[in-house]
Design a binder for these strands. Structure first.
Lengths: 134, 134
DNA sequence: CTGTATCCAACATGATACTG
DNA sequence: CAGTATCATGTTGGATACAG
């Protein structure tokens, strides 16, 4: 019971899938939900940066070459509303805002790094497969 | 040297990020590449199913409620060209085609399951954070 | 400094019809 | 059975200008 069955709703979380996988359930599958959230263009990089230390808005803007102001704001807002990042405003003049990982965000770092590690270890094989066209 | 520095190109694979993160490098970051590939709408589910046993095309179509023929084909083709899935044609009449995970695909299963497990364990917290609006 | 508002192009996905 | 072709739609992300 270390890993108890949390029910069919978890789908990809368990190793026992119903067959067929119900469309309505899959749409709310936690694993898919989290994976899709975390894999938009800038999220992984921002989480990784914030995993090192807190950053201010423009500091992130400078650190992440190529990100638009719009996407930086949008991505941070999403991370905050998901509870992975917290935002603290210092009422200085001009204002400064600091972003940091929440404990939930920190806990995500480990499985995310594991996947990143797999990617690094096996990217050459994937590249090779892609070369083999078709 | 168990985990040697594979260079700045790996970016998210190491825990030492350059600052600023170069735009051109990030675009080819293995971790981001893999994450984005694996997180499209059906890939995670298909990999999980194929992690249990080989499937035939229409068998997958029946197993995955809601997927269109077009997306099933497209997703399997992408998985194949990335070397995660292999496709075997049996020249019967009518033809039958079997899909199975390659060893590379199998090796992906572990870190992917770990992330899925995190999602299951923490999805309630994410949901709660979302309820708190803003 | 830390954003918001608008507009737009590219891409992902779905619906439907057709094929060897 | 195992696809391909075409068209329609929604979503993502970027450029630019403006604001407290």
């Amino acid at each position: 019971m270390a890993t108890s069955n949390t029910g069919v709703r978890t789908l990809l979380g368990s190793h026992r899938l119903p067959n067929p996988v119900p469309a309505g359930e899959y749409a709310r599958c936690p694993a898919t939900d989290v994976l899709r959230r975390v894999s938009d263009k800038w999220t992984l990089l921002l989480i990784t940066l914030l995993g090192q230390r807190p950053y201010r808005f423009n500091e992130l803007h400078r650190a992440v070459d190529g990100i638009s102001q719009r996407m930086l704001t949008r991505t941070l807002r999403t991370l905050k509303s998901d509870g992975l990042v917290e935002r603290e405003v210092f009422p200085t003049l001009p204002p400064s805002v600091e972003y940091r990982l929440t404990p939930l965000g920190v806990s995500l770092l480990e499985p995310l790094s594991a996947l990143a590690g797999w990617a690094v270890d096996h990217h050459a094989e994937i590249e090779a497969a892609r070369q083999r066209r078709t």
